[in-house]
């Protein structure tokens, strides 16, 4: 495993931990989109169908379990935990996430590398992950106050995607037959979605002012 890939996984892990810290410790999910969290739970559930059938490494299995467990517990917290539930900004989190799921499913049925159930589900998860952040970005734009933990959560998620791109470039030049257009294009689309947020996040950090996004 190369350094970009490891750093990507670690920033992904940090983003999840930041979110869990906010929810579990402060008992608040203010500014967090339940729609995005539900989409991520669906992404991991459909991508890791191989978790008990194909063993890759202990690292791989443990990380899969962490991402599955954390995404479903975040959804549980936001839907079922009394205190956390109360801080959920339901009125602003109105993105119709079904509008993302269906096109991704159709696209996965049309464009995939192998027409098997597992492979189509895996491809669907790749497409869905690319756009799953959209409800969260829309919610951020509608919320005038973005607290530090929410900003850091989105920042680390974006960092994870950027590092994965460096990982693909590295693997392309170091491994034979490493060509994965579906993953690359989806990953690139996903990273570009963060570009705007990154711009405002970094400039607020540089100028030492609170993060706000333009309407």
């Amino acid at each position: 495993m190369n350094a970009f890939r490891l750093a990507g996984d670690m920033t992904h892990l940090i983003s999840v931990l930041v979110l869990l810290l906010k929810i579990h410790t402060i008992k608040s999910c203010a500014g967090i989109s339940l729609k995005t969290q539900e989409l991520y739970a669906l992404v991991f559930a459909t991508r890791y169908l191989d978790i008990f059938t194909d063993f890759i490494s202990l690292y791989n299995t443990v990380m899969k379990l962490i991402f599955l467990g954390s995404s479903f517990s975040i959804v549980w917290y936001m839907r079922r935990h009394k205190l956390v539930q109360r801080s959920y900004d339901k009125d602003h989190d109105t993105f119709r996430h079904q509008l993302l799921v269906l096109p991704c499913l159709i696209l996965a049925l049309l464009i995939h590398e192998q027409f098997t159930f597992k492979e189509v589900m895996w491809t669907f998860s790749i497409y869905l992950e690319a756009v799953a952040i959209l409800p969260q970005l829309v919610l951020l734009q509608r919320t005038r106050n973005i607290d530090n933990l929410t900003g850091q959560y989105v920042f680390f998620l974006g960092a994870y995607r950027s590092l994965y791109i460096l990982n693909w470039i590295y693997r392309y030049f170091t491994e034979p037959h490493y060509v994965h257009w579906i993953t690359w294009i989806s990953g690139l689309v996903q990273t570009l979605l963060y570009a705007d947020f990154f711009y405002y996040y970094i400039s607020s950090w540089k100028n030492n002012v609170k993060l706000t996004l333009p309407a």
């Binding site: 996984d9 994965y164 994965h180 993953t183």
Partner: peptide, 10 residues
């Protein structure tokens, strides 16, 4: 073979 390599990613 090529398909499998990307499956070690998360």
């Amino acid at each position: 073979l090529a398909l499998e390599s990307v499956k070690d990613e998360l």
